[in-house]
Amino acid sequence: MRTKLNLRESDPKLYLPERAKILKIKDFTENEKFFELALLDRPKLGHVPGQFLQVSVLGIGEAPISISSAPAEHNRFDMCVRAIGDVTKKLHTLNVGDIVYIRGPFGNGFAEKTLSTMLGKHLLFIVGGLGYAPLRSLINKVVPERDKYKKISVLYGCRTSKDRMYAHELDELSKIGGNVELLETVDKADENWTGSCGVITTLIPKIDFNPNETIAMVVGPPIMYKFVLKALLEKNMPKENIYIDLERRMKCGVGKCGHCQMEGIYVCQEGPVFNYAEVEKNEELL
């Protein structure tokens, strides 16, 4: 039989972004800024933790940026932006009150189904550098509901103490106590740092966890995954209990432009959050 070119439903707004106004800007580090934004044309973003947006500055372009705040019932959301490309450098020059344009949220994120498997478990966040930005959307969701989990451990590693993001929130996190713990390390200690020194994997032996009852969430620079995954597997953690959240080049966010395709997987559609057991054979992803 002949295959016809059936006219499927067109999405006229597929590439049309919407407005968001900058409410607050904070300098985190030399290269990273915090932005709080508000949607102007609808009541809430409606995201799940781990999803991302395509953020535009008109005339400069569009870049994929993680949503850094937990899902909320209002129109505000956060991002943390490292000035590294044309769009992100331009974002760093903007002021409170300026308008940016967004599309999304995109990607799978930690959907309700995944989140429900975490209930009653020990949540182990293993975060490197800017990886705190995407995982903060989940950390800030689960910490206020900490009674629902056995324990919440956040391991955070940075190059130096100056590279810590959300420093104020980290301090608050460390004071909560009970079933919430924060362990930090820096690659290079300076005179102001009295904590651990070493790569992120040096924190793993310091926490007590039952690998079968623990769900790990790993986010950081590309090089970090290999070592963290090895350390977790050595602790006999089942692969199904490990989630990774990945960064790739993305132009469309809707599985067409091809930039984020790693072997057969479109990161913008099937990720950026992946269950390790499902993707361990994908050599480009890991």
């Binding site: 070119l5 499927r8 439903e9 067109s10 006229p12 597929l14």
Partner: peptide, 26 residues
């Protein structure tokens, strides 16, 4: 064309592509 169509029309219907398909006789 069949492949192009499935790529652009499936899931998120690409408006720029579909507008052209609609007006084209092959």
């Amino acid at each position: 064309f069949k492949i192009l169509h499935e790529a652009f029309a499936d899931d998120h219907g690409d408006p720029n592509y579909l507008a052209k398909v609609e007006q084209t006789v092959v």
